[in-house]
Design a protein around this nucleic acid. Structure first.
Lengths: 121, 121
DNA sequence: AGTATATTTGTCCATAAGTGCAAATATACT
DNA sequence: AGTATATTTGCACTTATGGACAAATATACT
């Protein structure tokens, strides 16, 4: 039950849902600073939430220099697949600001890669 | 986002998952004492968890004398439907004891109705 | 080696959430 | 009205969780 419960507990936080949904919508690997700028939440907070998500197996990680890129794990099991489906049914309007900021942020990429950290303020 | 988040938070507790799964498996309305005897968890604790579940709209309630019967709400919306699907994918083995005790407890019903309170101890 | 940047982690604090017990409520029955 | 039973609720206690800040780590570059 541990695996299932840890995952379900992870879903009970708005920031983590926003992170998951952002990764789902973008369909790209995103680095922490891109997520921070999209969600407008402190980097250390994003980092900790990502850590928890990662611990459940729902996220994949890869490194690009100092940038660590996260995405939804592709080798999902059935439970994780259904969680993704579940999160998809939350209406877009709850994430429209996040998506807008993500698009702005992604426009800064060079050759499809993140090359700059936080642009906030 | 409130509706979705409240529901997701509700899923992050083992007792609540067990209650939901028990109601899903039984396909019957169950009274609190039947749930208590199946899960072997104090009645006041079950009652409080049911209250939270009820607050999200995932449970229906009806009264039969002093017994209050709970079931999964049938007029589910898409989100709730997907939650049910999600919980179904958790392997049976995690709930086998609950189901066994429920069957024993349901055998005591008379004319399909609960007529006795807690039989524990 | 030293600096810069992206990210993680440790600690402290406030608040949320679950548990246990006792008391309160609601209904039925005599 | 008084009793019995099923369920809820209020309160005190403990533990889990998220937020803020500082410090630590990891990588790249010169």
């Amino acid at each position: 039950m541990d695996f299932y419960l840890k995952l379900l507990k992870c879903l009970g936080d708005q920031t983590r849902i926003r992170i998951l949904r952002l990764l789902m919508e973008s369909k790209l690997e995103l680095c922490v600073c891109e997520i921070v700028d999209s969600l407008q939440i402190p980097f250390y907070s994003i980092s900790k939430h990502i850590k928890e998500l990662k611990n459940t197996g729902i996220l994949s990680e890869s490194r690009n220099g100092t940038f660590i890129m996260y995405s939804i794990a592709k080798d999902e099991n059935e439970f994780i697949t259904k969680i993704i489906e579940l999160i998809k049914t939350i209406p877009d309007e709850n994430f429209s600001s996040d998506i807008t900021l993500l698009k702005k942020r992604l426009a800064i990429r060079e050759n499809g890669k993140c090359t700059i950290g936080l642009i906030k303020k």
